[in-house]
């Protein structure tokens, strides 16, 4: 539950700072005439897609925070037995780091208006992500082959649940990424394309950050954290 407390403190501080900037304390009946509808960003409305992405990241963060909170709550029971993790996870992690880095390069290249480098980086990012995805599938196969079924132990179940939820988010991102690649092939490079590439990069950084957190949970680095959480509660 402390996970959710951190999440809420974070989200509510961001929301409060935003509302503050937008003048939530002002008395509207005292304001005359046409005034700027938006503060910040030079008085222009924020970019729709970027706003939507950030809000979606908030929702996804909420989802993963809840999963982590459930993980910690369930971990305390007597029948919890962490399975040995498939080694391939480390390779997958490297692949995801690579794809996140590649998309970062792609975004930088798009801003510098060098379409060739951008396309290569986009493809590199997509390939690395696919490697990650199939690597994760391989890890599932390995778990099942070694007899660590989801029904066997809650720790196994959480392994499948967490990696599955993450992989689905990655799949959704891949759809957007391939659309971007298609657009990069068809369209002339421009501001709008660069903005889209930037969104992909942001999303991939988010996926990477979440994955590292999940990995920490699964490996057991977070056990100590869980112990601290429970001690705080009792």
């Amino acid at each position: 539950m402390s996970v959710m407390a951190f999440f809420f403190i974070f989200v509510f501080s961001v929301a409060l700072a935003f509302l503050w900037r937008e003048g939530v304390l002002e008395a509207p009946w005292l304001q005359e005439g046409e005034i700027a509808a938006y503060h910040g960003n030079g008085g222009r409305p924020p970019n729709a897609a970027k706003t939507a992405l950030f809000i979606f990241l908030g929702v996804a963060l909420c989802l993963f925070s809840l999963l982590c909170a459930a993980f910690f709550m369930r971990m305390g029971s007597y029948d919890w037995q962490s399975p040995p993790l498939p080694r391939i996870l480390w390779f997958n992690t490297a692949a995801l780091v690579a794809s996140s880095g590649a998309l970062h390069r792609a975004s930088a290249a798009a801003k510098e208006a060098s379409p060739q480098r951008m396309k290569i980086a986009l493809w590199a990012g997509a390939v690395a992500s696919l490697l990650f995805f199939f690597g994760q599938l391989w890890a599932w196969r390995q778990m099942i082959a070694e007899g660590f079924y989801a029904s066997g132990n809650p720790a196994n179940a959480f392994f499948f649940l967490l990696t599955g939820a993450h992989a689905l988010h990655l799949l959704g991102g891949l759809v957007a990424l391939f659309r971007t690649i298609a657009r990069a092939a068809l369209e002339k490079p421009g501001k709008s394309l660069a903005a889209t590439v930037e969104l992909c990069a942001i999303y991939w950084h988010f996926l990477l950050a979440i994955w590292l957190l999940l990995l920490a949970l699964l490996v057991g680095w977070a056990d100590n954290l869980g112990v601290i959480c429970r001690r705080l509660l009792t």
Binding site: E22, I35, Y38, P46, A48, A52
Partner: peptide, 16 residues
Amino acid sequence: VVTVLQARTRGMTLMR
């Protein structure tokens, strides 16, 4: 949420 955040017309502050 995004519509309210970014599609308001000229002069439409949040507090209006």
